[in-house]
Amino acid sequence: MSASNTITQDDLHAYVDGYLAPNDVERVEAWLAENPEDAASIHAYQLQNSKIGQTFNQMLDEDIPNEMLEIVTAKKEKPATNSIPWLRLAASIVLLLVGGMSGWMLNEKTGSNAQRDQVAFVDQAVGAHHVFVSEVRHPVEVPASQEAHLVKWLSKRVGTQLSVPDLQDGGFQLVGGRLLADASLPAAQFMYEDNTGRRLTLYVRSSDEEVDTSFRFVKDDGATAFYWIDNKFAYAMVAPMDRSTLLPIANKVYQILSGQ
């Protein structure tokens, strides 16, 4: 700050933000006593700072997402997660099963932004899964007894000819399905159940922006999801089981649906 007696705009801001030396504070305060317009500005600017603080300060108390901590603490030489023996086995089974299908990978959901963009719909699928698998009386809108009608209806709304994969080999029977709204897009949810009451859901909606993706895996509290995007449609298979159990089922569904 200059030693001059002239008070500049910069001095006024520095006063508001507390960057003035005590002598200069006195000088500015003397000036403000005689210049009510500047005093009003100062008051307004102090109020702005305090309002901005009140508005956004509580965000500092939020827990840091694990994804962010993982980015910071990740070791560069960290072995790929799918080197876990059972998973490597599962991955090789996938490779055998998919045979000629190219472009298949088994990935973990990572913090990378591109992937996050692609999986926006997975959150919807997992959310819808949790909402409806716990429904006792009305888990579906249209029951499996009306399968032909169900498939025709949902195909029309979602915009592609859907087929309901038969998962009886895996012990799962179709319960039925329902129409959902994923943002502004219609989405179809099919629900299956095994004889122990375990339910899994298959979620489908159109996808105009995403390119085809590999077959991916994500775990969300209590549920596992496999998801992929194929020919402008996004699919997610969600179930309350670990991925080695869900993998063969999801793989079968993938083959049936992408083989159309």
């Binding site: 956004f56 300060n57 965000m59 500092l60 108390d61 939020e62 840091i64 962010m68 901590l69 910071v72």
Partner: peptide, 9 residues
């Protein structure tokens, strides 16, 4: 990590 809350805010 100490800076993450501020970056987010």
């Amino acid at each position: 990590v100490e800076n993450i809350p501020n970056l987010r805010r």
